[in-house]
């Protein structure tokens, strides 16, 4: 079983990102589970959401403490939250930033930084980075594939909005694939 923890701020769509990744994984024939770190979230407050991927039914119900992957939607979180806590050796961290990150990355972790805010502004016209980061996650981990992402996004955001989000996700996917 592989586990993902998403760090974001209330309003950035972390819970939606977890849902969309789980839906895309399910489309690819993987048993997936997505859930938020339940809280009374306010806009701007640190939030977490989780995804599990497995070949068979997932029974475990605890939160994720030792993820294989993390996504950080907002690098300013790194000052307030230990986003790398428990991240496995050999794990992958995907961080939205246009600069270097303000913390030491644990040994053995592969760090991928991407200016998801810039991409989202260009492709969507709003600084909502979750769908861009889904594309980066797909390219970095191979857990989900672009056709499944498209299906999940179009189901959640039918029409033009879905197309724009698919464009953002695919742009990030190709960018990260190109760097790999």
């Amino acid at each position: 079983m592989r586990e993902l923890r998403i760090h974001g701020r209330g309003g950035q769509g972390s819970v939606t990102a977890a849902e969309l990744i789980a839906v895309a994984a399910f489309e690819d024939g993987v048993y997936s589970q997505a859930f938020p770190a339940f809280g009374v979230e306010r806009r701007g407050a640190p939030v977490q959401a989780f995804v599990r991927f497995n070949d068979e039914k997932i029974r475990l119900r605890s939160q994720v403490y030792e993820p294989d992957y993390i996504i950080v939607q907002d690098s300013s979180l790194i000052r307030d939250v230990d986003v790398f806590a428990g991240l496995k050796k050999g794990g992958i961290a995907i961080v939205n930033t246009e600069r270097s990150i303000p913390a030491a990355v644990p040994e053995g972790v592969r760090l991928i930084t991407i200016d998801a805010t810039g991409i989202a502004l260009e492709k969507l016209g709003v600084p909502i980075t979750n769908t861009t980061l889904i594309g980066a996650f797909a390219a970095a981990t191979g857990e989900i594939a672009p056709p499944a992402i498209r299906k999940a996004l179009m189901r959640r955001f039918p029409g033009k909005l879905g197309e724009k989000n698919v464009a953002a996700a695919e742009y990030a996917y190709n960018l990260v694939k190109g760097e790999a």
Binding site: A18, A22, S32, A34, F35, P36, F38, R61
Partner: peptide, 10 residues
């Protein structure tokens, strides 16, 4: 509550 109500699964 939450553990099942808010979890996506097949």
């Amino acid at each position: 509550g939450f553990i099942l109500t808010h979890t996506y699964e097949p």
